[in-house]
Design a protein around this nucleic acid. Structure first.
Lengths: 247, 247
DNA sequence: CGTTGTCTTGACTGTTATCAATTGACGTGG
DNA sequence: CCACGTCAATTGATAACAGTCAAGACAACG
């Protein structure tokens, strides 16, 4: 049996190792972090726009997303966050949130006080640098999404997202063999892609019809990686991952 | 007569002061930076996607933008950068560019070697923090643009951008009195907003027709700030500026 | 076994893109 | 000073992509 705190530490280490190798001292320092674990059902806010935060939130199980709302029920999701991610890492330097973070699935998060993260990064510059690089990769992903929102068709945009998610999940061991769990609703997908749920549904049907992907019980199977990459003009450089054969 | 290097220092100091007050020591350290000045005509690339950089680029005069291209001539501009901004500051930590930076107008830039910036931030944590905050604000602006690209109408989105630009320019003394220079083409505006140039033109006509703005010889005049804020649901919190009366 | 949320489908609407042509502004050189 | 060239802005006509509304099917879960 693995305790929740051990699991939190595990996903965090796995994520950081996907950015840079960790020294034994760095691992020990991470192990001393106090993780306060919380379970969430889908659709619960973890932090809200306008909140002044004093802790960060590490995703341990499930998916979360950052988002903002507009009038008339419009929502834009800015990013998906998977185990190992710290969606509100920026709150360390800008404590007042300009957006919200919510669970998209059943989720386990571990809360870590800013204080402890500050000590950690002050005494371990290598970890500070890994956290910063992770923030910059998030920024690169924002730009990739902007390109999709502004200039790709719904079809290309969705194909691009599925490529991105595959590499992101695989980097932390949550995908492989051309498949991964996609535990979110079509509404969430639409709010990330800037599309209506109806249109998401139709575009998914085309992607399946063209044998690019298939979906069975919330598992996405990539049936034709090369075609997905081609039509969405996907170039993985922005994700900052080590080069690795894809399939 | 002000030398180009003095002018570079001036805009940089003004920008940093809009983020955090500077100590005399910090000013002196900034003054010791070597600025290599370059003049550019509109539409020239400063750094290109894929480049491995060894210096950063400070905008001294004119506007620049970050962008990426897709097939069929599609372009998405991710951000506008005005005097005082360092569009490729992130290259300090991720030297391989995942997008390009280009001049949008006649532009003066000052190049600063990474080396010198690293020395500067290592010996002046206050400056390091100001640079990071600036990077995080850029990230917040990305999210604001994503919201516009994904979920606002063209009309709302453009109104929102005009509000944002007013506050950004005013923060460094380049706007005031409800007006500012808007020296870019409708094509550039469209590539930032995810719209065709034709549609940009038509939306501009509506904005003028409703007496929200007017445009004379590349000067944008805000005729009805309150209405712009209302229709675009503009909330300036994300820009990280000090509170200040708007008009 | 019914309730609830999610997915799916059809019909229709609307925003924005595309294509093509014209007008306008500005700088240059004769 | 005017003719010309160039680039940006504007206009009109048409098409395409994606949204909205409404209803029904399906599936998970208590």
């Amino acid at each position: 049996m693995v305790s929740a705190a051990e699991q939190s530490l595990g996903v965090l280490i796995r994520k950081l190792e996907s950015i840079a190798p960790l020294s034994p001292e760095e691992r020990q320092a991470l192990a001393r972090l106090p993780f306060t674990v919380r379970m969430l059902s889908p659709g619960q806010d973890i932090v809200r726009e306008g909140d002044r935060t004093t802790q960060c939130c590490l995703v341990v199980q499930g998916w979360t997303g950052r988002y903002r709302l507009l009038t008339r029920g419009r929502r834009q999701i800015f990013s998906f966050h998977i185990p190992g991610d710290i969606p509100d890492l920026e709150s360390l330097h800008r404590p007042v949130m300009d957006h919200s973070v919510a669970s998209l699935t059943k989720t386990m998060v571990a809360l870590i006080p800013h204080e402890n993260l500050r000590e950690l990064t002050a005494s371990h510059p290598g970890l500070a640098s890994a956290f910063w690089r992770s923030t910059l990769v998030d920024g690169a992903i924002f730009r990739a999404w902007m390109l999709g929102l502004g200039r790709r068709s719904a079809f290309e945009h969705m194909a691009h997202l599925f490529c991105e998610l595959y590499l992101k999940l695989r980097a932390v061991g949550l995908a492989g063999d051309g498949r991964y769990p996609l535990p979110i609703t079509q509404v969430d997908l639409g709010d990330a892609l800037g599309l209506s749920n109806v249109h998401v549904n139709r575009v998914l049907q085309v992607l399946r019809g063209q044998k690019l992907i298939s979906l069975h019980s919330s598992t996405l199977v990539i049936e034709d990686w090369a075609a997905l990459v081609r039509i969405s003009e996907f170039d993985p450089a922005y994700l900052g991952l080590e080069k690795q054969a894809v399939l």
